[in-house]
Amino acid sequence: MPLLEISKLTHRFAGLCAVSDFNFVIEPHELVGVIGPNGAGKTTVFNLITGVYRASVGSIKLKDQELVGKTPHQITSLGIARTFQNIRLFKELSVLDNVRIAHYGQIAYTPAEALLHIGRFRAEEKRITNRALDLLAIFKLDESANEKAKNLSYGLQRRLEIARALATEPALLLLDEPAAGMNPNEIIQLMEFIRWIRQTFSVTIILIEHQMRLVMGICERLVVLDFGATIAQGLPSEIQKNPKVMEAYLGVEVAS
């Protein structure tokens, strides 16, 4: 059974068709890349999956459960987490709190119990603090647990964002340009890192990226978007030779 099944997904912004007739299926444990020139609608697809935008037409199904019409926090609780193209951490809060916020949906006590600090409150707080610290330790961020997120270096902020996304216990992880602003050396490290995340947390990953080295290196399958339309799908080696993709990226050769 496919993990995520998107069919006939279409979204318009006041007449501009950002995504049109997008069909996509991903099996559990796959690693798929979404590429395309700037403005092709890649991030819009992520925003539609996570419920930030509501799709005009089409359906998105996670394990046969319809996601269109659900709010972002409901979708996150169902098992989809994401990172952002421009890092969106809670900058003024501590690294630990950043991860603990992502446990919000898993807390079992009610607002009334929180109001009086009774019942399951203590046990639950202890549980999520320990889990957040364990997660930070895995990502080697536990030494800076009490630091403000904005004081971390750029690379660590990217890492924290992924840790935060994983804290929601997703089945599907959406990474929006994880390599933005990284040098070739760091990109090689990031490739290892993404493979390792998939193994350790057994998540399915969809990746938006411009860095061809990264995409060609780790993705098992690629989807190419251009002006909201899907122009190609297939193995990385096939995509590299696809004339339509070359046209989208490099333009058409003018007959002289």
Binding site: E92, G105, T168
Partner: peptide, 14 residues
Amino acid sequence: LSIREDEIASDLMS
């Protein structure tokens, strides 16, 4: 606190 920092991100963090 997360709403103050970034409401959309906080919604996406459940």
